[in-house]
Amino acid sequence: MNDATEEQALVTSGQQEFLTFTLGEEEYAIDILKVQEIRGYDGVTRIANTPEYIKGVINMRGVIVPVVDMRIKFNVGEIVYDQFTVMIILNLGERIVGMVVDGVSDVIALDPDQIRPAPEFGATLDTEYLEGLATLDKTTEDEDERMAIVVDIEKLMTSSDMGLMDQVVQAG
């Protein structure tokens, strides 16, 4: 799934690739090696008696995968489901999870020194799951300097906050 040679090249240059996505006003970056694919929001089967942000399950080539809507979970953005709604399929080692976000923006490469520790600030996500803040290179001259919040997506998704695993108190 992951391109080993590419990974190697990046490791040697000290850089790591990230996928950035938006949730409301904020831009988040996640390790691209955790991303399996990006697809539209379609064919989700509802699961009863679950928190609202757990949208249900989908069929990912024969595997049944849960879908969470981060917009609902973090109460940002506009909750619509149409042909523009995107879902990032995350491959977190043992687990596969679909994650609905406002939009996918970019794939960026970051040097480790571009990621600074996250201060205690009012990000939507709990600081516990943040790896730091990254300043993004300007793509055009007239663009404002952008900042991305680097998230440890595996830690977040497997946390009891998300309720995607069995160790969590069962719903219903």
């Binding site: 064919g43 009863a48 069929n59 049944i64 995607l164 069995d166 219903g172």
Partner: peptide, 19 residues
């Protein structure tokens, strides 16, 4: 990839690809 769901023993994939 998910967890046990109350009242449900498993899932299957239907002819239209839905769960």
């Amino acid at each position: 990839h998910y967890r046990k769901v109350e009242g449900v023993s498993g899932a299957t994939i239907m002819g239209d690809g839905r769960v």
